[in-house]
Design a protein around this nucleic acid. Structure first.
Lengths: 128, 128
DNA sequence: CTGTATCCGTGCCGATACTG
DNA sequence: CAGTATCGGCACGGATACAG
């Protein structure tokens, strides 16, 4: 019991992939990059994800230093998830992935679909 | 039955991740980027990977248009795997992932480990 | 509102043996 | 040399119910 603290891969690329490749992580990061988000907000923004899984993914990203979890001792307990410096460093990387994904979608077959453009320039750093 | 031809995700980032995130894909790409490689070569270069899995990964990457498989009708049958244009477009992306992985390794805990530097500049485009 | 506990399908990967 | 067939483990994610 009590997580043996899963070791990350030694090779940098694999390490990076391991850390971002969760089913919902890119999307979560997309929102969190725009500013601190509460759990309930994230839930509303991604209606398809289960709460359990959402928290799971957040926990992992926290453990990997991508996001920071802050609890505010208020009346209705409030919790905010914020991107760390390390996490923000993923913006260009995710952007690159996104762009290549576009190229791939076009080259491969169907239309570009939802231009999701994961990362918007670091402006308006608080809630959308 | 008969592969429903697994749909790739609609969102570009997820699509890209899905395509690269195989257990051995980054490493395989690393070698293939340096020039066409035979199956036996790849096996020798990555002693840890199973032949079945190696072929599996190659098949998927072929299906996704990252590598091209060429059979040469020679006496001892020869097969070469080469990176496609689309595949080569991943070099900068993998490089970005690699670099961020380094930062992460340092920031997180242990030393930089094996500086794996997945992608080397497009030179010496044939066998190492 | 935020979070935990349980159960379970499925996908990915590995080991091993066999074939043209 | 290049490839297929089989079997099985295990992590991941999803559904659902419950708790502080």
């Amino acid at each position: 019991m009590a997580e043996p603290i899963k070791r990350l891969p030694k090779l940098p690329v694999e390490r990076a992939l391991k850390v971002i490749a969760g089913r919902w992580k890119p999307v979560i990061l997309y929102y969190v990059f725009c500013g601190p988000k509460r759990l309930s907000e994230l839930k509303r923004m991604m209606p398809e994800i289960t709460q359990k899984v959402l928290i799971q993914q957040l926990r992992e990203m926290e453990e990997h230093g991508l996001v920071r979890r802050e609890v505010f001792a208020e009346v209705p307990a409030r919790v905010e998830y914020t991107a760390t410096e390390l996490g923000l460093g993923l913006e260009p990387v995710l952007l690159a992935l996104c762009q290549w994904g576009q190229r791939h979608a076009e080259a491969q077959n169907e239309i570009a679909d939802i231009a999701d453009c994961i990362v918007r320039p670091r402006k308006a750093s608080f809630a959308a």
